[in-house]
Amino acid sequence: MAKVQASPSSYYVPGPSYWPIQGSLALFLFALGSVTSMNDYPWGKFVMFAGLALIFHMMWGWFSEVIRESLDGKYSKRIDISFRWSMAWFIFSEVMFFAAFFGSLLYVRWITLPALSTFDQHAFQNLWGAFGGVWPSAGPIGSERFAPMEAWGLPALNTLILMVSGLTLTWAHWGIVQGKKTRTVVGLALTVALGATFLYCQATEYMHAYSHMNLKLTSGIYGSLFYIMTGFHGLHVTIGAIFLLVMLVRAMKNHFTPQHHFAFEAAAWYWHFVDVVWILLFIVVYVL
């Protein structure tokens, strides 16, 4: 089928590197530390923070190296395509991660709560007395009353914030494409600021929920799902904002050219993904 012939290749293959092994050790320590501290070993958190520190150091070093290689012009068109593919697949994996929680929420609302509160289907017997199974619910034993999160206050504002940040980001992208640095920098700065505002609002909301609404992580299934979904989303906003912040710095250092700026695009894709997840969250968790 195949005959070998010469054809020049230009795919840059990096040489030996210590970053991956450091990253593995770091995650190992992080896991070990978090498990032990969850099980009340006092030294656990030190191991955990050591792991975290190693992770951050590794990321700093590894990304710096990648940036250096990029600036050295080692990345051909083909590598650029590799990066695009990989970022797309990475975002797909994130989509599936959130899908697990969205699926859980719908499952609980459509299947679990009705099953917990049906009287007749299984005649005679109902394990949970008069439990009504109305969403939002903390379950039959979650007796403490809580108030569910209202959609049209802060959350609606947050939706607006994230949507606007999507626009400012696109504006910044045009800046790169048209070679207008100021626009890029301002656009990115605005986006990061909007992201930070979003996180601030989210934190306020959490505090309000804990102190005034009695809505806690432990408030049955509603509390569990509410915090895990918004919490993981918030984490992703944080990561996205840091990602954009790095892009801001790189933009200021003139790292991007109109042709060659995939790092920026990756950050933008990520940000839009976080944006879309929020809109779905807003509809499914808050509105419905």
């Binding site: 969850m38 697990a100 609980v108 917990l116 379950g139 039959p140 299934i221 509390g223 569990s224 895990i228």
Partner: peptide, 27 residues
């Protein structure tokens, strides 16, 4: 990633008082 979400919920149920898989809390 779905498995990761799944074990994360299990971990939360074990240590942080959530009720994903516990009927008493509506899970």
């Amino acid at each position: 990633p779905v498995l990761a979400g799944c074990v994360t919920m299990l971990l939360m149920d074990r240590h942080f008082g959530t009720s994903f898989f516990n009927a008493a809390g509506g899970g």
